[in-house]
Design a protein around this nucleic acid. Structure first.
Lengths: 137, 137
DNA sequence: GTAACTGCAAAATATTTGCATCCTT
DNA sequence: AAGGATGCAAATATTTTGCAGTTAC
């Protein structure tokens, strides 16, 4: 709970119920969350609009980042290292379990470099692996 | 244009105006397309619903596949090899140019394998590289 | 001729914006 | 007390569904 308040304060955000609850959700799960997950998990105690605005604020501050998905949903995840340092290092692999549908940040697996065709200058790379996670195997 | 009809017929699809136009769009561009791009490019000559249904049909038949994105859009791309063979091999890297905003299939760059933590069984991997493309450099 | 595709209407869902009120600092 | 955050209402955008008319084969 200390950590939670630290994160908000460090980023110059006022401490409100919605921010505390939503950030707590991210801290207690290892999986990524979609907007809909957050609405469900907080029992709809916050206005839908507040959830949108809270997520947007967190992304702007670099507290969470979004993860590429193949469908039209946006997944958000907070990753330990980032938060501790206050800036983004989401260069790790994301794993989507096709069984339990969770998206997990594999903090220890970094995205490998690839050789691109001539003329292409890479700036940032993301990688998503689908399969069966440790819990569902 | 021959190719175009071949693709439709090979997949057991009847040849209609919308399918021809939309498939032609994919064939003449190397970049991936979003639903909105298609509506614009076809001059809104087709109903929005038809575009949805056509894209869905193409995905089901394996003519196009969708590409992961960080925002909440869905990008679709047809990749040469897949179409020639009639089934999916989209295990190549996708490049998103942050300048022209195009998403390009790098057919020749395959997604590298990564070593996952114990218990994780990979099934499919995708990789997205952001940066500056050959045209914008 | 028949099955399948399209367009229109409308429903359902998702996202954004404006504004008055309430809460944090 | 002041600035920012929230909730509500409503506008806007996106996606889905049903159905009647049309088209491809």
């Amino acid at each position: 709970m200390e950590l939670l308040l630290d994160i908000l304060k460090r980023n110059g955000l006022s401490v409100t119920e919605s921010r505390k609850s939503i950030l707590a959700l991210f801290l207690q799960r290892e999986a990524a969350l979609a907007h809909a997950d957050i609405e469900k998990s907080t029992n709809e105690s916050f206005d839908r609009v507040t959830v949108y605005r809270t997520l947007q604020t967190f992304v702007e501050k670099g507290i969470i980042h979004n993860i590429p998905t193949t469908d039209n949903s946006i997944l958000y995840a907070l990753c330990k290292d980032n938060c501790e340092e206050g800036h983004h290092h989401d260069n790790h692999v994301h794993f989507i379990c096709t069984d339990c549908e969770k998206t997990i940040c594999l903090e220890d697996v970094t995205v490998p470099h690839v050789k691109l065709p001539k003329g292409f200058k890479p700036h940032h790379a993301a990688m998503i692996v689908k399969g069966i996670c440790d819990d569902c195997k």
